[in-house]
Simulated assay, not measured.
Amino acid sequence: MAYLDPYQRPAPDRFVRRGLFITACIAALMLLWQFLPAIEAWFSPREAAERTVMARGDLAADEKTTIELFEKSRASVVYITTAHSGFIWDDAGHVVTNFHVIQGASEATVKLADGRDYQAALVGTSPAHDIAVLKIGVGFKRPPAVPVGTSADLKVGQKVFAIGNPFGLDWTLTTGIVSALDRSLPGEAGGPAIDHLIQTDAAINPGNSGGPLLDSAGRLIGINTAIYSPSGASAGIGFAVPVDTVMRVVPQLIKTGKYIRPALGIEVDEQINARLQALTGSKGVFVLRVTPGSAAHRAGLVGVEVTAGGIVPGDRVISIDGIAVDDVTTLQARLDDKNVGDVVVLLVERAGKTREMLVELQPGV
């Protein structure tokens, strides 16, 4: 049968009506469930819920060690008004820092960890090692000197700790490892290279210069001195002057105001040496002249001689105490490992024959 008038359709069956009602109820319940959290939040009290603080438990052993190291070492580190760092060397009030920290400064003030400020006097510098010594007059409550360790036995991978004032943020601790040993960096303004540097990934930034690099026992193993970074901020490559160098240089600076490098008493030249190496195909250091009366003269070394028949080459230094000497820079670095009065064994070549010579090192000029 066809229904021409839509309004004259018969009423739906009662079962259909019941199904539609149940479906509508289910849809309403699902909608209510979705908005239930919002409704509950609207009618719940507006006060913040109380939280219970969980017990942390004991600190890890390495955390305790690091905290103890910082707390013990902090008082030995100072802030220098050139926005850099330094540390207390001894009970006499000597403060060790980098030469470049105080270079060009007319005066410097040293601030201790307890807030006291002292005007510092310059004691001595060694630009070749980037080391300077200041002195402050502390009559009471003297700050502790940093304990001194060694650097000859350092191992790549061992933990290190740097304390300083990066970007003027005083008494900051950073940690890392020894990344490499025996690095060299060119000196400032074409000066001699700084050798035997410790490389570390402990964050060292501008302002850390002059601060101590410590081992896990809290002993001084180096002076933070430079970073390698195109941006000027820490890139994970920092350098420190090793404490064994500091131990040789600082006592001399305190005693005489300057560092006297041990010398052989010979004249050498980097550029001439490079040319002679290229001509002969030999490494080592060619002795150009022996100073009369010097340690080298007494040992029998000879330099270049000019005769009627031409130029006679002198001795070529091949090694010092069994360590190879490739050029003038390494010769100076090897000598700098020694002290005035030490006797070294030189392996030299003369007229195609090698020989060993004993030389007692003398003060350099």
Score class of each variant (00 low, 15 high):
residue 345 V to Y: 08
residue 81 T to P: 14
residue 125 T to E: 11
residue 3 Y to R: 07
residue 342 D to W: 09
residue 310 G to Q: 13
residue 204 I to P: 00
residue 275 R to S: 15
residue 7 Y to N: 15
residue 294 S to R: 15
residue 298 R to H: 12
residue 249 V to K: 03
residue 241 V to G: 06
residue 72 K to R: 13
residue 337 D to V: 02
residue 130 D to L: 08
residue 110 V to D: 05
residue 116 R to W: 01
residue 311 I to E: 14
residue 118 Y to P: 01
residue 184 S to Q: 08
residue 352 G to H: 06
residue 114 D to N: 11
residue 349 E to R: 02
residue 147 P to D: 00
residue 142 R to V: 08
residue 331 L to H: 03
residue 332 Q to A: 09
residue 103 Q to W: 05
residue 10 P to V: 08
residue 31 L to H: 06
residue 283 K to H: 14
residue 60 A to G: 14
residue 58 D to M: 07
residue 181 L to T: 04
residue 310 G to S: 06
residue 117 D to W: 01
residue 111 K to R: 15
residue 130 D to W: 02
residue 281 G to R: 10
residue 144 P to I: 01
residue 10 P to E: 10
residue 331 L to E: 06
residue 247 M to D: 13
residue 284 G to P: 04
residue 254 I to H: 05
residue 43 F to I: 15
residue 352 G to T: 03
residue 63 E to T: 13
residue 327 D to I: 06
residue 328 V to G: 07
residue 292 P to R: 02
residue 170 D to R: 15
residue 200 T to R: 11
residue 276 L to E: 08
residue 49 A to V: 14
residue 119 Q to V: 15
residue 305 E to D: 13
residue 121 A to E: 12
residue 129 H to R: 05
residue 210 G to D: 04
residue 156 V to T: 07
residue 12 P to C: 06
residue 340 V to Y: 10
residue 41 A to Y: 11
residue 219 R to E: 15
residue 176 G to W: 08
residue 286 F to M: 12
residue 305 E to M: 11
residue 360 E to L: 09
residue 117 D to C: 02
residue 168 G to H: 13
residue 312 V to F: 00
residue 97 T to Q: 09
residue 207 G to V: 04
residue 204 I to L: 06
residue 228 Y to T: 07
residue 338 K to H: 12
residue 312 V to L: 12
residue 220 L to F: 10
residue 213 L to T: 04
residue 220 L to A: 01
residue 280 T to R: 04
residue 247 M to V: 08
residue 238 G to R: 12
residue 132 A to E: 02
residue 145 A to L: 01
residue 94 H to Y: 04
residue 95 V to N: 04
residue 153 D to L: 14
residue 329 T to H: 08
residue 221 I to W: 10
residue 348 V to W: 02
residue 178 V to A: 00
residue 276 L to W: 07
residue 164 G to T: 11
residue 134 L to H: 06
residue 194 I to R: 01
residue 278 A to M: 03
residue 174 T to F: 05
residue 163 I to V: 03
residue 254 I to K: 04
residue 96 V to D: 05
residue 241 V to M: 04
residue 228 Y to S: 10
residue 126 S to W: 01
residue 18 R to K: 11
residue 32 L to R: 11
residue 163 I to D: 00
residue 361 L to T: 13
residue 99 F to G: 05
residue 275 R to H: 13
residue 241 V to A: 00
residue 261 R to C: 07
residue 89 W to Y: 01
residue 43 F to K: 10
residue 354 T to C: 07
residue 93 G to H: 00
residue 285 V to K: 13
residue 96 V to K: 04
residue 76 S to N: 02
residue 99 F to K: 01
residue 146 V to H: 02
residue 35 F to D: 11
residue 271 Q to C: 07
residue 37 P to L: 12
residue 48 A to P: 15
residue 259 Y to L: 05
residue 163 I to F: 00
residue 55 A to G: 12
residue 229 S to F: 13
residue 37 P to N: 10
residue 103 Q to R: 14
residue 322 G to C: 03
residue 185 L to C: 01
residue 150 T to E: 10
